Simulated assay, not measured.
Amino acid sequence: MRRAVFGFEVLRESGMPLTNPWLAGPSPDAVLPQEALEERILNLFSIQNMAVIATINSDGSPAATPVRYYSLGFEIFFTSWNASVKSRNLLRDARVSAGIFAPLVGQASSRGAQLFGTARTLERGDPASDDYWEAFRWQSDHVERGRPPSEPPTDPLTVITPHRILYTEHWLRRTGFAPRQTWRPSA
């Protein structure tokens, strides 16, 4: 049964209004153009700041740790002292996965990314770390912890370079695209 509410047509399934009828039925399977997919991933990275990093313990079991991250392009990075479990795990095995997601209100708002790649640790003073440190907003953290903003952190940076990103956004279904899209770096 259908009826109009504020000029919008409302579909009723099983006596209940279907708020997002485009979520019903099979998912489309159209692939989003690379440029549009990259724009959506970069937007997600820019509007979120927490990721769950999954590393591999020495016994082969997984270890998942939430971190506050920053991004440059498709790489994400965070600070961690070398003695932490995640840093020790990554020094032994650089394979890593990270999950970044937007707050979930319902299926229509489901949006996130799973990064699969490798991690590298850059010590302070390493010239390869300069661009990352410039993008890292450590000053507010220092002030919050009572440290002077004139003294930058000495902890190393961990940079995750993805070789694949699985991007999920159910809103894509509205326009006929699959809700899960796979990104790989251009060759």
Score class of each variant (00 low, 15 high):
94 A>M: 01
92 R>T: 12
76 I>C: 02
93 D>C: 05
75 E>D: 12
93 D>N: 14
99 G>R: 09
76 I>D: 00
85 V>R: 15
103 P>G: 12
74 F>E: 08
91 L>M: 06
92 R>W: 05
83 A>T: 12
86 K>Q: 13
74 F>H: 14
75 E>H: 13
101 F>N: 04
74 F>Y: 05
79 T>P: 02
99 G>T: 15
89 N>Y: 09
87 S>K: 04
89 N>D: 15
100 I>T: 05
75 E>R: 15
70 Y>E: 14
92 R>H: 07
84 S>F: 05
87 S>D: 01
99 G>L: 14
103 P>R: 06
90 L>Q: 01
92 R>C: 07
102 A>W: 04
69 Y>M: 09
102 A>Q: 10
84 S>W: 10
89 N>S: 04
91 L>W: 00
94 A>V: 00
70 Y>Q: 11
99 G>M: 14
92 R>P: 00
100 I>W: 05
70 Y>V: 01
85 V>S: 11
98 A>G: 01
101 F>A: 07
80 S>R: 08
73 G>W: 05
101 F>R: 07
77 F>N: 00
74 F>T: 06
75 E>M: 11
101 F>D: 07
101 F>I: 12
68 R>M: 12
93 D>G: 03
69 Y>T: 05
80 S>W: 10
96 V>R: 11
67 V>R: 08
83 A>Q: 14
80 S>N: 03
91 L>I: 11
100 I>Y: 06
82 N>G: 11
86 K>T: 08
96 V>S: 08
85 V>G: 03
84 S>Q: 14
75 E>W: 05
86 K>S: 07
71 S>V: 09
80 S>C: 03
74 F>C: 09
82 N>W: 13
81 W>L: 01
71 S>Q: 12
86 K>M: 10
79 T>S: 04
69 Y>N: 09
72 L>C: 02
84 S>I: 05
98 A>K: 10
89 N>P: 00
97 S>Y: 14
